[in-house]
């Protein structure tokens, strides 16, 4: 009762990063609320993951294991989740904002008639006083997210319904195991009592998982280009610098829309969220849609000929000038100094 449950997603025999990020965040929230942090994991052979969940602070692991549940299927997975939430009545339930989490969480929220906030970028605990009735609420989950195309940041609350549900995108929160794993318990869910044959009416007939060839998220250095780069050819300069520094090339939405770079490279609110140790933004103006996906980078260098471009405001180093001159100079300098 009244605990926090994190839905744990697995992919290719591994726990998804976003689930571990949510456990890390969940520890802080559970600490503030003096409640337990719990995890729900569903699959065909997921026992192997329990130690890792303890490493990340899950005090209770609800384990639903069934050979029919090898791959995510909306109906049986939601049946198990809904059943657990009805019995355990968590105050907060968090899911990754992945194709699985965004398929499962709304279905669960509808069945439980509880509110769900999508794609949160920040979660906090706070109080609320209803202006009309004067009713006061303690320790609500503030679900903070960009809305309206990223032009505003909205704080959403669910004052009266439980669980308070939210999805969070991968890469937005930090992932940090505990120094000492918790000694938690595993509670096995009897799937046969919950899922029915008709929950399997939708069958997967083919599935080919293609690992993302472009791994922007995993790269410690990202060189990103925007519309200001001017052309697909000019992007070659970015690739050149990236290969010298061992970096990946990213792009803003405007650059992707203009055909300068592939969609898989898109960083920002509608693309990937990254937090590399170094982010070099070239020809990017710095619209919030883009910066929402990179402003947590450890260091930002902006290159833009417009001294008033908003990207310079969030940069640690703002270079005012033409990237066609600056990037070759960076390459030259690196080659001179790195020996």
């Amino acid at each position: 009762m009244d605990n926090i449950i994190i839905y744990i997603e697995t992919e290719g025999g591994k726990i998804s990063d976003v689930s571990l990020e949510l456990l890390t965040k969940g520890r802080t929230l559970a600490g503030e609320l003096s409640c337990k942090l719990e995890a729900l994991i569903i699959g065909s052979s997921v026992e192997q993951h329990t130690q890792e969940l303890f490493n990340y602070g899950a005090e209770t692991i609800y384990l639903a294991q069934d050979k029919r549940l090898e791959h995510y299927l909306t109906l049986p997975y939601s049946a198990i989740t809904i059943d657990l939430f009805k019995k355990e009545r968590p105050q907060i339930a968090l899911f990754g904002a992945t194709s699985v989490g965004r398929d499962l969480a709304p279905r669960v929220s509808s069945a439980l008639v509880s509110g769900l906030t999508a794609d949160c970028t920040s979660l906090e605990i706070g109080n609320h006083k209803e202006a009309k009735s004067g009713k006061e609420y303690q320790n609500l989950l503030y679900q903070i997210r960009p809305a309206f195309g990223g032009n505003i940041i909205a704080t959403i609350i669910n004052p009266d319904c439980r669980p308070q549900m939210a999805t969070v995108r991968e890469g937005v929160m930090k992932k940090e195991p505990l120094a000492t794993p918790v000694k938690g318990v595993v509670k096995v869910i009897e799937t046969k009592e919950i899922i029915k044959t008709e929950d399997f009416v939708v069958e997967i007939i083919e599935r080919h998982i293609e690992e993302r060839k472009i791994d922007i998220k995993g790269s410690p250095i990202i060189i990103a280009g925007g519309f200001g780069v001017g052309s697909k050819e000019n992007f070659n300069l970015l690739y050149e610098l990236a290969s010298v520094l061992g970096a990946e090339v990213g792009a803003s939405r405007a650059a992707v829309d203009a055909g300068f770079a592939e969609g898989a490279r898109q960083i920002g609110q509608t693309g990937i969220t990254v937090r590399p140790k170094l982010y070099i933004a070239a020809g990017i103006s710095g619209q919030i849609q883009h910066t929402a996906g990179m402003d947590q980078s450890a260091m930002i260098i902006s290159i833009n000929s417009d001294p008033n471009a908003p990207i310079h405001q969030i940069a640690d180093y703002a270079i005012i000038g033409d990237m066609n001159e600056i990037i070759p100079r960076m390459i030259k300098s690196y080659k001179l100094n790195s020996k």
Partner: peptide, 17 residues
């Protein structure tokens, strides 16, 4: 069930650059 508690317009936080 969801209520909007607060809306903030995006303001860029200037840091020492």
């Amino acid at each position: 069930p969801t209520k909007v508690k607060k809306i903030e317009n995006i303001v860029f936080q200037a840091k020492e650059s």
